[in-house]
């Protein structure tokens, strides 16, 4: 069995950390944008300006799909071998 991934992880121990940080930062940015969209849509809807609500929902949903697709790139958990209790 190939030990390429294991060797890579040993050679570049910070790579997983960098990837994880980038993923989390982008997810936080997505969520911030969604909070702003929801706040704006709600305020406008209550002021009887409903035109903005549907585009805001579409934008929010697209951001969610981006976030969900983004999880595909989560680095695999590094499994420890030979767990001894």
């Amino acid at each position: 069995m190939s030990n390429f991934r294991e060797a890579q992880n040993q050679a570049h121990p910070n790579k997983t950390s960098t990837l994880m940080l980038a993923l989390i930062v982008i997810l936080i940015m997505n969520v911030s944008l969604q909070i702003w969209l929801l706040y704006t849509a709600l305020n406008n809807a209550l002021a009887e300006n409903t035109d903005i609500a549907f585009p805001a929902f579409i934008a929010s949903f697209v951001l969610f799909l981006i976030g969900a697709g983004w999880l595909y790139f989560l680095p695999n958990q590094v499994r420890r071998k030979n767990i001894n209790f």
């Binding site: 989390i24 997810l27 936080i28 997505n30 969520v31 969604q34 909070i35 969209l37 929801l38 849509a41 709600l42 809807a45 609500a53 549907f54 805001a56 929902f57 929010s60 949903f61 951001l63 969610f64 976030g67 969900a68 983004w70 999880l71």
Partner: peptide, 17 residues
């Protein structure tokens, strides 16, 4: 969990719309 929150916010926006 962030992705779950994102889904919740999208659902909330849908409800408002």
């Amino acid at each position: 969990f962030l992705c779950l929150v994102s889904g919740g916010l999208a659902t909330g926006s849908g409800y408002v719309a």
